[in-house]
């Protein structure tokens, strides 16, 4: 056995290798994102996922082996979800200023996101647990993953759907709202946070500060509402 083979076998058994790869791949993604002047097309998560997937396929490593290392990063999703309370709390005064329009937009936006995703998917022939995995895709990842697990979807698939939703939202939001002639930054930001979670919120902050603050509230509230509604909607539909 060559020294290299022995080293490779040793590294495959511990979490160090794939934990490092995860951080470096994300670092590269973030570097490219900044270099592309934060264009929503160059999403650091998407870049990292592509790089790591290629590395896994090229080295013949299965996902379980990879996850032994990556689980330390994955675990932080829990405390991160709890931490979402901090920006939500900081924006509470905005919440009071437009409580009724926000509540209405939250319920409508959240339901339209869930029902239209499942409806369009069904029309295009998507069935079974793959269709279920689409349901929570507008909520922020940690919540969407937890919800997917609860309602019988595939969390890994939901994770990819959530990221793509965020990218699509960040790319279409400004042209769409300009075409609709909406000039109220509160409405624009809030709808973005509800429909396109953190990636949409980051985009909203690039365009306008008020829009960003309202997007943060929209994201936080939709995380809550999706967690509450998705199990009921899944129960009714599936």
């Amino acid at each position: 056995m060559s020294d290299f083979t022995r080293l490779w076998i040793y590294l495959q058994q511990g979490p160090l290798l794939w934990l490092t790869v995860t951080l470096v791949a994300y670092g590269i993604g973030d570097f490219l994102f900044v270099r592309a002047r934060r264009s929503p097309w160059v999403n650091p998560v998407l870049v990292a996922v592509l790089l790591i997937s290629v590395a896994l396929v090229a080295t013949g490593t299965d996902y379980e082996t990879y996850f032994q290392g990556a689980q330390f990063v994955h675990f932080l999703l829990g405390p991160a979800t709890v931490a979402l309370a901090v920006p939500l709390f900081a924006n509470l005064r905005h919440l009071r200023s437009a409580l009724v329009p926000m509540t209405a937009a939250l319920v409508v936006g959240s339901l339209v996101a869930m029902l239209s995703a499942v409806g369009i998917g069904w029309l295009c022939g998507v069935r079974g647990e793959v269709l279920v995995s689409l349901l929570p895709k507008s909520a922020t990842s940690p919540v969407a993953l937890g919800v997917a697990e609860t309602i019988g979807g595939i969390p890994a698939l939901t994770a990819a759907m959530v990221i793509l939703t965020g990218i699509i939202g960040a790319v279409v939001v400004t042209p769409l709202f300009n075409a609709m002639g909406v000039s109220d930054w509160r409405a624009r930001g809030f709808a973005t946070g509800v429909a396109a979670h953190g990636i949409g919120t980051a985009r909203a902050f690039q365009v306008n500060d008020t829009a960003g603050a309202f997007a943060g509230i929209g994201m936080g509230l939709n995380a809550l509402l999706t967690a509450l509604l998705a199990p009921a909607v899944a129960h009714l539909l599936f």
Binding site: T22, L23, A25, Y26, D30, N43, P44, V45, L46, A48, V49, I52, S53, L56, V57, D62, Y63, Y66, F67, A70, Q71, V73, H74, L76, L77, P79, A80, A83, L84, V86, P87, S141, P142, L145, I154, P155, A156, L157, A159, A160, V162, I163, G198, I199
Partner: peptide
């Protein structure tokens, strides 16, 4: 600090796409 690097935390789950 955690929320500033929130995107990183989605990577392990996102890579799960290789098994799907």
């Amino acid at each position: 600090v955690i929320l500033g690097n929130l995107s990183l935390l989605f990577v392990p789950a996102g890579v799960g796409i290789v098994s799907q």
